[in-house]
Design a binder for these strands. Structure first.
Lengths: 260, 260
DNA sequence: TGAGTGAAATAGGTAATACTTTTAGGTGAG
DNA sequence: CTCACCTAAAAGTATTACCTATTTCACTCA
C-alpha cells in the first residue's frame, strides 16, 4: 500500500458532534478528578506558551515540587510531558530549560489550546487560518479521490443544509453545519495528517463566528462555493474540488489580507 | 500583533546544515548515554506506530517494568510520554491502552520517525508528500510577504546553485541544496506551523533521492520553477511565488498520481 | 432477573535514598 | 601567566517501598 487508502471504514459519518477530545478540555465531572499531574502541566504549559517563562528560563525539579506542593514523581511526570512537546529540555546539573519557540511541537493540540488561551492567541489564529488555506483545498481533492460513498452523500447534505440555514439566518446552527462540513472533508481526505487538523479547524471557525467576523448572512458566493465543493467531491472531480475549496477560502484570505 | 511577524530575527540564515534535531535520532556519543527512558520509549513507540501493538491492546506498568527490566518510575515516565503523543491512554484498574490511530498526534516528529522506520513507511511518505503539496505554495507566498532581506537573497543564491549543480549532475550536492531551499522557504514563511515542518520535508526529499525516484538530471522546467519561486519571493510577489511553487511540486504530484 | 456489595487489580501519588553526569572552581606544573 | 587536571557540588536519573483512589467484575441476596 503505497498511497493512502480509501476511507471506507464503517465508522459513523453523521456525527458532527463526534467526541472532539482532540481540542477540548478534559471534561471532568468533579473538578478534582483530573489528577495533580494534569493541573501542574496546564499551569506550566500555559506559562511557557504565553511567554511568561521565556526561552532559556531555568526551572529545577525541587523548585517545582515546592511551588506546586507535589512529589518529585509528579514533577518529573510533568516535565516529561513538556519535554515530549519540546517545550523544555532537561539536562543534568543545569535543570529544566525552556526551549525556544522554534523547537516547539506546535501541532500538539494541547499546546495549541494553551496558545489560544494566552495573550498571543491572535498569532495562533493567524497561523491556523493560513494552515487551513493551505490544507483544505488539497484535502478536498483527496476527498474527491478517496472519500467513501457515505461521506460524499453527507457532504452534499451538509452543503444543502448550509444553504437552508444561511437563508434562514440562524447563525449558530449555520456554524455547527459549517464546522461539520469542513471537518468531514478533512476526515474524508484519506490523509491522516489532514484529518488530525479537524479539531483546530473547528476552533478557528467557532472563534471567527463568535468574534462577529462572519457576515450575519453568509454571502451567496460562499454558499455556492460550498455546494460546488460538495458536488465536485461527489463527482470524484479532484481538480474542481480543489479549486472550489480555494473559492470557499477566498474570503478568509481577504479577511487576513493574504491576497494577491 | 494580529498577524505573523516578519521573520527578521538575527539567526543565521545560511546554515543549511542547521541542527535538525527535529527529525534526527538523539545523536549520542556513547550508546548508553541515552537514558533508560529513551530506549524504552523508542521500543514501545515503534511497536505501536508499526501496529505491532494494535489499538485496544492493553499494557500494564508491571508487565512493562518486567519486560524492559526497569523500575516503576521509568516505566511511568515512558507511558507519560506516550500519553502526551496520544498513543495510549492510561486508566486505573484497566491499564494502559493503545489508542486508535485517528487519535495520534501525527505531527509529533518522534512519531513520524517511528512511522518512517516501520513497515508502513510508504503510507507516511505519501501523507507527508501530500502535506508538502498543500503547504509549500502557501509558505512561499508567506515568504514573499514576510521573509527578511537575507532570506530572499539566500533563496536566490540557492536557486542559482541548484541550476549549477543540476547541470553538473552532482546529485548528492543537488539534494543538499534542494533541501536547504525548501527548508528556508518554510522557515521564511513567518508561520511557525509551516516552519515546524521543515524536518519532515527534508526527510521526504532525502528519501526520494535515495530511492532513485529523482531523474538523474533534474528536468529543466523544475530548475526554472525553482528560480521563479526565488525571484517571486525576492520581488515580494506572493501570488507568483505561490503559483511557481505549485509548478515546482507538479512533478511530485505526478509521481504520486495526485493529478487532474 | 437485577440491584447492591465487596474484593481485586491497577494506575496515581508520596517518600527516602543512592547513582551519574556535568559544570565550576581551585590547584599545581610548566 | 596559562593550561591541564582534580575535586566537589548541583541537579537530573533511577530504585525501592508503600499507601491511596478508582474502576471493574463477580458474587450474593432480594
Amino acid at each position: 500500500m503505497t498511497t493512502p487508502q480509501a476511507n471506507d471504514d464503517g465508522a459513523p459519518v453523521l456525527d458532527a458532534a463526534v467526541d472532539d477530545a482532540r481540542l477540548a478540555p478534559p471534561s471532568s465531572a468533579s473538578p478534582d478528578a483530573v489528577g495533580l499531574h494534569r493541573r501542574m502541566l496546564d499551569s506550566i504549559g500555559e506559562a511557557i506558551a504565553s511567554g511568561r517563562y521565556a526561552p532559556g528560563h531555568r526551572l529545577t525539579l525541587e523548585e517545582l515540587q515546592r511551588e506546586h506542593g507535589v512529589s518529585r514523581t509528579v514533577a518529573r511526570d510533568t516535565m516529561r510531558a513538556l519535554e515530549t512537546m519540546n517545550l523544555v529540555t532537561s539536562r543534568r546539573r543545569v535543570g529544566i530549560v525552556v526551549q525556544e519557540a522554534a523547537k516547539w511541537n506546535v501541532y500538539d493540540p494541547q499546546l495549541v489550546r494553551w496558545r489560544l488561551a494566552s495573550e498571543r492567541r491572535d498569532e495562533q489564529y493567524a497561523s491556523l487560518t493560513e494552515l487551513r488555506i493551505a490544507v483544505e483545498p488539497v484535502a478536498a481533492a483527496g476527498a474527491a479521490r478517496r472519500g467513501s460513498g457515505d461521506q460524499r452523500m453527507e457532504l452534499l447534505r451538509l452543503a444543502a443544509e448550509l444553504e437552508r440555514l444561511g437563508a434562514a439566518g440562524d447563525l449558530e446552527a449555520f456554524l455547527a453545519a459549517d464546522i461539520a462540513f469542513h471537518r468531514l472533508i478533512l476526515r474524508s481526505s484519506g490523509n491522516e495528517m489532514f484529518a488530525a487538523l479537524d479539531g483546530m479547524v473547528s476552533e478557528v471557525l467557532t472563534s471567527r463566528t463568535r468574534q462577529g467576523l462572519m457576515p450575519f448572512h453568509p454571502r451567496n458566493e460562499a454558499l455556492d462555493a460550498h455546494r460546488h465543493v460538495a458536488e465536485a467531491i461527489g463527482d470524484g472531480d479532484a481538480a474542481r474540488a480543489e479549486s472550489s475549496m480555494r473559492d470557499v477560502l477566498q474570503e478568509v484570505r481577504t479577511a487576513l489580507r493574504l491576497n494577491p
